[in-house]
């Protein structure tokens, strides 16, 4: 009797482990922090790319509607790819704030003058610490941030795609 119970118990454990490992196979192994909705410290100061003026980042955000934050660099090839989508967002009158990541101001300005400037304001991040505040792991990354709660609503790691563009449009319509 007790032998049968042991046997069945072992069998059941085995099946459970099997199912869990089976599901584990399909879980993405990449780092993802999409679920995290961390608050941004709005008291952060940063330097503007175009005027060398130091400002408080809370001034850049629209208090009533969400803004888009995009981390980019002129040396980053995928940033070049996604630039067209940012320009489209700009055409829809969306407030996009650029964070220029570990870049030379000269190259950054050239990049924007040749491809167009989608940003309402660009702040510089020479040592990469500002991007850490946004929970970024590299360039490019794009965030949608609620002006009301200072929270990150949505994250995109890597270059934006045309599908992302539609998603962002819908999100911003909801006016969170």
């Amino acid at each position: 009797m007790s032998k049968n119970i042991k046997f069945l118990g072992l069998l059941l454990t085995l099946i459970i482990i099997f199912i869990i490992l089976l599901k584990g196979l399909n879980v993405s192994k990449d780092y993802s922090n999409k679920k995290l909705k961390s608050k941004i410290d709005f008291s952060l100061n940063a330097k503007k790319l175009f005027s060398d003026e130091i400002i408080n980042i809370s001034d850049l955000f629209d208090k009533n509607s969400p803004s888009v934050v995009n981390i980019w660099a002129s040396w980053c090839a995928p940033c070049r790819e996604e630039h067209q989508f940012l320009m489209k967002l700009k055409d829809m009158n969306i407030n996009i704030i650029g964070i220029n990541y570990k870049d030379s101001p000269k190259n950054a300005k050239n990049f924007l003058s040749s491809l167009g400037n989608p940003y309402s304001e660009v702040i510089t991040d020479n040592d990469g610490t500002k991007s850490i505040e946004f929970g970024a792991i590299g360039v490019p990354e794009t965030f949608i941030i609620s002006g009301k709660t200072n929270e990150i609503i949505k994250k995109y790691i890597g270059p934006l795609t045309s599908e992302n563009l539609i998603e962002i449009k819908n999100l911003l319509k909801k006016n969170v």
């Binding site: 046997f7 072992l10 069998l11 085995l14 099997f18 490992l21 089976l22 196979l25």
Partner: peptide, 16 residues
């Protein structure tokens, strides 16, 4: 992964 996992569990089941 699916193949090795199934194969592994068949072997373990057989031995149990």
């Amino acid at each position: 992964g699916l193949f090795i996992l199934s194969f592994l569990f068949i072997l373990i089941l057989m031995s149990i």
